[in-house]
Write a protein that binds this DNA or RNA. Structure first.
Lengths: 215, 215
DNA sequence: TACATCATACCGACCATCCGGTATGTTCCT
DNA sequence: AGGAACATACCGGATGGTCGGTATGATGTA
């Protein structure tokens, strides 16, 4: 809700190159502070200071702390994931997919560490608050459905009925991505760039092997 | 630290069956409150009230809010996982392992929802606090090593060099379990009892198929 | 046994602090 | 002038932690 319009468009102050509207600057700061402190321990004051503004500016652009956090989730997590999967719809489901997806995930994890932490907080809060859970689940359902269609296409080429349903595969693959994201936060060195793709390939090979009956 | 002995042994007051020491009762209450509110939003007062005690009793048994939380993580998460894997050491790595492990995970997820939420909070805090990360990583390293040995035994039977290292497989399997645990918190209906085991089998079959060269 | 002493386990009022939110003041642009 | 876009002072409430007090039992001893 409250798809507020920005109040001004990227003005330039003397000598300093402005990076987006103050609303966007506050969102950037909020992402950093929420990520490093967690939702409850992140204070409005610190976010405003980190953005280079005062509390007044924050409450001018957002209705409340909760409103700021939800805007952040909407614009930095839900929207990008939706956009990603609208792109994926048009893309082919060939054998190079695994490597590309794996590299893409690794890139997001390496940069954008804050977003991973935010996503972590998101799911934790969604697990507790039924109201927030709705939005969280809605996006996840769409994601899973998209992934399931992709797997369906790959598995259909095998000609035999798959040993595990596409929806289940999709569920597990999302879980794998989430889990690797989290592991990478505490042990970056054990999650290689290729790992996600390798496991994906192993799962698909396992399906293929069973379809061929060579196991 | 402070492996405090219980102060009294399960006395029985008139008519009411005591369920463990007051320390244990406070830990139980803390598990519930921390799980439902999150660490920061859980108040000492609520935990004490939930346990049926006052704040004084809480601070008698624990040094601080942080101390209470860490004790909870130590005794209800780290210790059980360590114990589980010391048992696993002696167990055989036969083909029925997948099903058993999957059922075991499902059972924990179905009951003990609080522990899953606690674990979620644990990893989030470990990702932010380097001090807490040490303990978190230490346990995870041991877990991964144990799993890797189990996979090594299974894969060695194939006779060929595996396409993916045992350590990497273990990393991915832990990630899968973590991810499924989290998904189950928001969408219990999509995570079946058998899913974890099915994916495990698919991965192992993928390895076997490649070793046999039939892919 | 009877009394004094001490430790344990707990209570609950209190304090200093901090935080989200608001109300009001100030500046700048048009 | 007049409103948009901030800054600042302030308020009420909640929270973690402290501290003096106390009931209950254990221990020593005469």
């Amino acid at each position: 809700m409250t798809a507020k319009l920005d109040h001004r468009q990227a003005g330039v102050k003397a000598g300093t190159a402005e990076l987006g509207s103050s609303r966007e600057q506050i969102l950037d700061a909020a992402a950093r502070v929420f990520a490093t402190r967690g939702y409850s321990d992140a204070s409005i004051n610190e976010i405003a200071a980190e953005a280079g503004f005062s509390k007044g500016a924050l409450y001018w652009n957002f209705s409340s702390k909760e409103g700021l956090f939800f805007a952040l989730l909407d614009e930095r997590i839900d929207a990008p994931i939706r956009a990603l999967f609208e792109m994926t719809e048009a893309a082919p489901a060939d054998q190079t997919m695994e490597k590309q997806v794996s590299r893409g995930l690794a890139a997001v994890l390496e940069q954008e560490r804050d977003l991973v932490l935010l996503f972590h907080e998101y799911s934790a809060m969604a697990a507790r608050d039924p109201h927030l859970r709705e939005k969280y689940v809605e996006r996840n359902v769409m994601l899973r459905a998209g992934l399931a269609r992709a797997f369906e296409a790959r598995v259909a080429a095998l000609g035999a009925k798959p040993a595990v349903g596409a929806e289940e595969i999709a569920t597990a693959v999302i879980a794998l991505a989430d889990g690797l994201s989290i592991e990478q936060l505490t042990e970056p060195e054990v999650v290689s760039e290729e790992l996600f793709g390798q496991i994906l390939s192993l799962i698909l090979d396992g399906l293929a092997a069973r379809a061929k009956g060579c196991i």
